[in-house]
């Protein structure tokens, strides 16, 4: 089945006569030609993009992407376009966008200048700080308390980079483990393999809320970073595609940003019907009113 799809794809590329809409380029052309758009989703980025009931990807970013896909269909005037879902991890998401496997990555990817050399971002959909979660019982109240301990973060994230820098700068003497994904990182704390899991505050809240006993955990007040923007990733240097996606997200944020936010951050969500109870921050409310795609954290302090 997979093979036949591939052969079909090859045939479409090989026969230029079949390519319609000559004026399309890049991703839009590819979507039109192959009749599919590929979305990269995360498995444990609660509540942005994760496996819900029946192991289907759901979440705040997935809802936004679904509407973006509708906009792309409208742009291409083709309702038959199918959506293909591929699971990505923190370390595979950027190469997969760069090598053309994934068209839109819908998750919790921090938008920063360095990554913009590889990929593009549409308007940011969240702002988060890098913090850490510990067990209450371990009595760790500040970053300094972590000194000499084993901590974990997820491979391929900005968090682990900031953690390494902080470890060097403050001479913390940390043993830093790398986890494949966020659930594995949290598991390290849950099973006492690590004293703390360093990650974006919102993801920590999602993981802790969904754990067996949420009352055991506490999220730090100390942060390793400023509030950084999350964005949906798309291939770099593809202006026509980015224009369609930017216009779609801007419209979605303005029209239903706060409502979507409440759906995922203020009401019970699958799989365990837990309510994260996080009110919309003023900075994010402003972002929904006047969307930005900047990588600079300071641009969002408005």
């Amino acid at each position: 089945m997979a093979l036949s799809r591939w052969v079909l794809g090859l045939a479409l590329f090989a026969m230029p006569g079949l390519a319609q809409a000559q004026d399309l380029t890049g991703t839009l052309k590819k979507i039109k030609d192959t009749g599919t758009i590929t979305i990269g989703y995360r498995e444990t980025s609660i509540p942005f993009s994760y496996l819900g009931a029946e192991n289907k990807p759901v979440g705040f970013a997935m809802d936004i992407c679904e509407k973006v896909v509708d906009a792309v269909k409208k742009e291409l005037k083709d309702d038959a376009i199918k959506t293909n879902y591929i699971a990505v991890t923190s370390s595979t998401r950027i190469p997969l966008i760069a090598n053309g496997t994934v068209d839109l990555e819908c998750g919790s990817t921090t938008n920063n200048a360095e990554r913009q050399k590889q990929v593009s971002y549409t308007n940011s959909h969240y702002l988060s700080e890098s913090k850490y979660v510990t067990k209450k019982a371990s009595n760790i109240n500040s970053i300094a308390d972590l000194k000499g301990k084993t901590v974990v973060s997820t491979a391929g994230t900005t968090n682990i980079k900031q953690l390494n820098e902080r470890n060097q700068a403050d001479n913390l003497g940390l043993t830093i483990l790398t986890a494949k994904d966020h659930a594995e990182g949290f598991l390290m704390v849950e099973t006492d393999r690590a004293a703390a899991f360093v990650m974006d505050d919102i993801l920590l809240a999602g993981l802790a809320a969904n754990s067996k006993d949420p009352s055991l955990y506490v999220i730090s007040t100390d942060a390793f970073s400023k509030a950084e923007p999350y964005g949906i990733m798309l291939p770099k240097g593809d202006e026509p595609f980015k224009k369609v996606v930017d216009a779609a997200t801007a419209e979605i944020y303005k029209a239903e940003g706060p409502a979507l936010y409440t759906k995922w951050f203020g009401t019970p969500i699958p799989p365990k019907n837990i309510n994260l109870n996080l009110p919309l921050s003023p900075a994010l409310a402003k972002q929904f009113e006047a969307p930005l795609d900047s990588a600079d954290p300071d641009a969002y302090i408005r």
């Binding site: 591939w6 090989a14 090598n99 053309g100």
Partner: peptide
């Protein structure tokens, strides 16, 4: 995992890397 889309691109002379099913 990272190379196959580029190899496929070279093989068919496509302007951009070709997405390949992870199973494949």
């Amino acid at each position: 995992f990272f190379l196959v889309p580029f190899i496929a691109q070279k093989m068919v002379g496509s302007p951009r890397p070709i997405p390949i099913d992870p199973f494949l």
